[in-house]
Design a protein around this nucleic acid. Structure first.
Length: 457
RNA sequence: GGCGACGUGGCCAAGUGGCAAGGCAAGGGUCUGCAAAACCCUGAUCACGGGUUCAAAUCCCGUCGUCGCCUCCA
């Protein structure tokens, strides 16, 4: 297998650190609001990665964090905690918010056929680990304290910013962030003190004072706990390259001297057609629920994503989603008509493996799917091979069945009349009756097995 | 202002040195009383201008255009 590693900026062969096992850490949601389709693109990518690893026979230990504290509204470390802000907005407590949006997130994952991680880890369940991690960094001499928190001194780490190829000088020059009491623009909070004049909903005792952990420390602490100080793959969205992941690496380098993960993989952004930013903070955004409300199967969005490379920005449009929905419908129908699976075709399987193992080249894998289903292999072989592919693609083809909706009695009556008219070759009457049925919202098809009705879309 | 990415048929999108995948749409055809569905067939020389090379969509330079990050973001 070959994956593109952001750290080295090259596609290189993936070899697990421990034979047969893979430690995978994927940055999860900050649960202060719903996840939008852009977020879900990243989770779909990670799902494909996970499925591909398992397809190759690896045992994957997959950890996903739930950020339920400490993620500020600004990376300048001066902003408000997102959870507290969400609490004000909704009237729920910070804890209720976290539970609510975590549940919503898992619902969206399920609707997109995303496999759940082996371990969910909530930041607030690991305060002790995070404090210990900060102490480790402090003992190594990389911290300093200001009036509002404990900070990481990035100037003491020569390798700081390597992942993002940060131009520190340039950052200083074009700086647009409020430094506060920080020594360097890239320094970041490890622990923030609760404001003296108010009590936060989420706060804990620490050696430095009552407060809460910074956003980046949770990933270093929790990944170390579950996967060790150096594990196989760490994933996230492209926006995490320059700040979040850079800081995670800094923390772990300070404490353990490793760059945290052997491979760093990042999914690129989904962009909206009209160039409207799809950020959580803009308030109005597309999410899985939006698709459902519009009558789309969420898996159409999965198909939409699989048609493009994860390392390329992808433009979302309703036209594009329609195309994906249509092709998914066809694939499902074809799959269903292929009947029962027999044996997998080894040649197709080899070609498929080569594609997905080449940095998850899903567009090519999908193209191979079409070639397979239209090949002249026996139906059972095509079906068996397709289902094998689907363990990676994740369309749930094995379980799909055409929906059988009963037409209302009046429509059935019209159909009966039409059959009568046809039998008597009164074609005009037959056509008029079909128009009537169409107007009632049903599509009529004459098949070798007789007429069939299905709801019009 | 700093950094970076991209520009492939009507739309989306693979391919990154050796005859340009796939999906959706469109046109033609088979089937059908008609239609639908299904199936078959058809189309791009890769923004533009130079250069390197036996050979470039793929490498280099320039121009134009679009977009992203540097501020919350996956």
């Amino acid at each position: 297998m070959y994956f593109y590693d952001t750290y080295t900026r090259e596609k290189r062969e993936f070899v697990p650190l421990k034979p047969g096992e893979v430690g995978l850490y994927t940055c999860g949601p900050t649960v202060y609001n719903f996840a939008h389709l852009g977020n879900m693109r990243t989770y779909i990518f990670e799902d494909l990665l996970r499925r591909t690893l398992e397809f190759n026979g690896f045992q994957v230990k997959h950890v996903m964090n739930i950020t339920d504290v400490g993620h500020l509204t600004s990376d300048a470390d001066t902003g408000e905690d997102k959870m507290e802000k969400g609490s004000r907005r909704t009237g729920m407590t910070a804890w209720q918010i976290a539970d609510f949006y975590t549940a919503e997130f898992r619902k969206d994952m399920a609707r997109l056929n995303i496999v759940e991680p082996t371990i969910w880890s909530r930041a607030t369940d690991h305060i002790k680990e995070q404090i210990e991690f900060i102490r480790c960094i402090e003992a190594a001499g990389y911290t300093y304290q200001t009036s509002d928190g404990v900070y990481f001194d990035t100037s003491k780490l020569p390798t700081y910013g390597y992942l993002g190829r940060l131009d520190i000088e340039g950052l200083q020059a074009g700086m647009r962030i409020d430094m506060g009491e920080k020594h360097n623009p890239t320094d970041f909070a490890l622990w923030k003190f609760s404001p003296g004049d108010q009590k936060r909903q989420m706060e804990w005792e620490s050696p430095w004072g009552v407060g809460f952990p910074g956003w980046h420390i949770e990933c270093s602490a929790m990944s170390a706990k579950y996967l060790g100080s150096f594990f196989d793959i760490h994933c996230g969205g492209e926006d995490h390259i320059t700040v979040h992941h850079t800081n995670e690496i800094a923390q772990t380098e300070a404490c353990y001297g490793t760059r945290l993960a052997n491979f760093w993989m990042h999914a690129y952004f989904l962009q909206l057609d009209d160039s409207v930013r799809m950020s959580k903070s803009s308030g109005d955004f597309l999410r899985v629920e939006t698709l459902v409300e519009k009558g789309y199967d969420p898996l159409a969005y999965r198909m939409f994503c699989l048609n493009a490379s994860y390392r390329q920005k992808l433009n979302f449009s309703w036209e594009g989603l329609d195309a994906a929905a249509k092709s998914l419908d066809r694939l499902r129908a074809i799959s269903h008509e292929l009947g029962d699976p027999s044996v997998v075709d080894e040649d197709y399987l080899d070609r498929f493996s080569e594609m997905v193992d080449d940095d998850l080249n899903m567009p090519r894998a999908i193209a191979l799917v079409w070639e397979l289903v239209r090949s002249d292999l026996p139906e059972g072989v095509r079906k068996a091979t397709l289902l094998k592919f689907d363990t990676v693609l994740g369309f749930g083809l094995a379980d799909w069945k055409p929906s059988v909706e009963e037409a209302p009695a009046e429509v059935v009556a019209l159909l009966t009349q039409r059959q009568q008219a046809r039998a008597e070759k009164r074609w005009q009457d037959a056509d008029a009756l079909r128009d009537q049925i169409t107007a009632d919202g049903w599509e009529l098809m004459d098949t070798p097995e007789g007429p069939k009705l299905k709801p019009r879309k």
